[in-house]
């Protein structure tokens, strides 16, 4: 705001000084200064609109400003929308268990990984007798196993220490009815019985051992799956195959 200082006489220029000044400095424009154009009205309006939006956003998505609320839509200032009813559907639970524990090898598509992990879709082990399938999941597998004529040589861990009966039953039901599979639902009591029967087994099973298990359905297993036209379980009359055709 102060008036610009006048150049003092001692800094006055002489012809000698001129030679020392670089050309770029002589042709330079003045140091930058400010114009005084006003702030446009539309910008002010836009700022007000943004401020209004911000207030609304914070109101609705602040989670009540609590340190233990992580879902933005959970609480808006003391108003808690009721949580949606929890899925009791075994297929939904089974899907959750499957993606969390099985999908890293067998993939969400149920197709496995070629050459490494066998597919579950259209697999005779999955659609076949639930006694064998339950034994595999409870104890794990080691060594070669043939699925659809392809030999896979890998390890599957035992799940009996990690998953509960109802979780195993749900995931077996899920894999037996997903990707076009159409075998019966497995019940938790069947898994409980199998778990008791295999209680002392601490190493994974091998293919011959699995095939030596009597091919039977576990107690509580429904005989068939819903058919593709949407008939509920038990109405369709497809019998589960008894021996895996290898």
């Amino acid at each position: 705001m102060d008036p610009e200082k006048k150049p003092s006489p001692e800094r006055g220029a002489s012809e000698m000084d001129v030679a020392k000044v670089h050309g770029a400095l002589l042709r330079e424009k003045q140091e930058p200064c400010d114009g005084m154009a006003p702030i446009p009205l539309w910008l002010m309006t836009a700022i007000l609109a943004l401020a209004f939006w911000s207030g609304g956003y914070l109101f609705f998505y602040s989670g009540g400003f609590r340190g233990d609320v992580f879902n933005e839509s959970q609480i808006a200032w003391g108003y808690a929308p009721t949580a949606p009813g929890k899925a009791k559907d075994p297929l939904a639970i089974g899907k959750r268990v499957y993606v969390a524990n099985c999908a890293s090898c067998h993939q969400v598509t149920g197709l496995g990984q070629p050459g490494t992990y066998p597919p579950l879709a259209d697999s005779d082990y999955v659609n076949g007798p639930s006694s064998r399938l339950a034994a595999i999941v409870l104890n794990g597998i080691t060594g070669p196993i043939k699925v659809h004529g392809v030999v896979y040589n890998n390890n599957m861990p035992a799940w009996k220490g990690l998953l509960k009966d109802d979780q195993i039953a749900a995931v077996l039901t899920y894999i037996r009815q997903e990707w076009g599979n159409k075998a019966g639902a497995v019940a938790p009591e069947g898994i409980a019985a199998k778990r008791a029967a295999w209680a002392t087994r601490s190493t994974p099973l091998t293919e011959p051992e699995i095939l030596a298990i009597p091919p039977e359905e576990l107690p509580g297993t429904s005989s068939a799956a819903p058919s593709s036209d949407g008939t509920p379980p038990g109405k369709a009359a497809t019998a589960a195959p008894v021996t895996p055709s290898r």
Binding site: F70, R96, Y98, V99, A100, N101, A103, V108
Partner: peptide, 13 residues
């Protein structure tokens, strides 16, 4: 993330 099977619940602090 959940549907991909990377967890069974969201992670928290």
């Amino acid at each position: 993330d959940l549907a991909r099977g990377w967890g069974v619940r969201r992670t928290v602090a």
